[in-house]
Simulated scan of single mutants.
Amino acid sequence: MPTSPSSSVQEARKTIAERLREIRLDAGLTGRELAFRCGWHPSKSSRIENLKTLPSDADLRAWCTACGVEDQAADLIAASRTASSMYMEWRRMQRTGLRRLQESYVSLYERTKLFRVYSSHVVPGLLQTPEYATALLTAITDFRHLPNDVEEAVTARMARSRVIREGDHRFSILLEEGILRYRIGDVATMAGQLDHLLTVMSLPRVSLGVIPFTAQRRMWTIEPFMIFDEEQAGVELLTADVMLSAPNDTRLYGRAFAELQRQAVYGAKVRPLITAAVRSLG
């Protein structure tokens, strides 16, 4: 089973803590001696090594200086910052509303050539109609008690989604069939969204696959994720957005995507699933 995104963040932090312990042992210092040299409480060294306290940049510099390896501080600080930026809490990202969050991804979308997108819960933002996006972002705003800037956020999301029709980007998108049936918004909103999927799947640079309820599962339903070229994988949790850039993590999500692709149907086999979902709206 793939490592969870939150576990990947913890693993990155654990790697840093283990490296700090190795540096201290190589220097022949006890935790208490290190603390004395750094000028902090004796228990702090232990807390850092046991992941009870996350070291600041200053802590890492002091640790390396105390152990006589000042040249390693820069790499440790860079690794620590990467681990911290992997896990971005939604409440922090969304505290001023949703518009800025939509805009924050524009540069990443514009420079990505190949998008691999898997969604198990809702239609991905790239494929949403304004009405569907409005219903979804309104629900998120209400659930998280955010400042209501839904109209501006929808406009920003639609602007961001222009990459699907502009430039030389390519899109491989996988949806679980349940998404076609989960009702976001009213009947008219869902009907419009499903019709839009039929239109988008005909675009030359878009490959849209649907994993049917009847698929023989080799890969189970997992959290929604996007892979941007080979550089990053963005994973959506209820509490946070996790951006993974470690090669092992991106490769793991690439493998998961390949397994899910093998379970999906395409083209002429997708249309009956979408039209059946439209008929179910009555």
Score class of each variant (00 low, 15 high):
P2L: 15
Q10N: 12
K14H: 04
K14I: 10
K14P: 07
T15S: 04
A17L: 08
E18F: 11
E18C: 06
L20D: 00
R24A: 04
L25D: 03
A27V: 09
G28E: 01
G31R: 10
R32Q: 10
L34K: 00
F36R: 14
C38K: 14
W40M: 02
K44E: 05
S45A: 15
E49K: 07
N50L: 04
N50I: 01
T53R: 01
L60F: 05
A62I: 05
C67I: 02
G68I: 05
Q72K: 14
Q72A: 12
A78T: 01
A83W: 05
S84H: 05
W90I: 04
R92S: 01
Q94V: 00
T96K: 15
G97P: 02
L98S: 03
R100A: 11
L108S: 05
K113Q: 14
L114G: 05
F115E: 09
S119F: 01
H121Y: 11
P124M: 11
G125N: 07
L126H: 07
L126C: 05
P130I: 10
P130R: 08
E131V: 06
Y132S: 03
A133C: 12
A133W: 06
A135P: 11
A135S: 15
P147W: 04
P147N: 13
V150Q: 03
V150R: 10
V150Y: 04
E151P: 06
E152T: 03
A153W: 01
V154E: 06
V154S: 08
S161M: 08
R162N: 09
V163G: 08
R165W: 07
E166H: 04
I173D: 00
L175F: 01
I179W: 06
I179N: 08
R181E: 03
R181Y: 09
R183L: 08
R183G: 03
G185E: 11
D186T: 10
V187S: 00
V187I: 14
T189W: 02
T189C: 10
T189Q: 02
G192E: 06
L194Y: 05
L194Q: 04
L194H: 02
L198I: 04
V200S: 01
P204F: 08
P204A: 08
I211W: 06
Q216R: 12
Q216I: 07
R218Y: 14
R218A: 14
M219A: 15
M219R: 01
T221G: 03
E223Q: 13
M226N: 02
Q232F: 15
Q232M: 15
G234T: 09
E236L: 12
L238W: 09
T239F: 06
A240W: 04
V242I: 15
L244Q: 00
P247E: 13
Y253D: 02
Y253I: 04
Y253K: 04
A258P: 07
Q261V: 10
V265I: 11
G267D: 12
A268L: 14
R271I: 07
P272Y: 09
L273A: 11
I274M: 07
A276M: 03
V278K: 14
R279P: 01
L281K: 00
G282K: 14
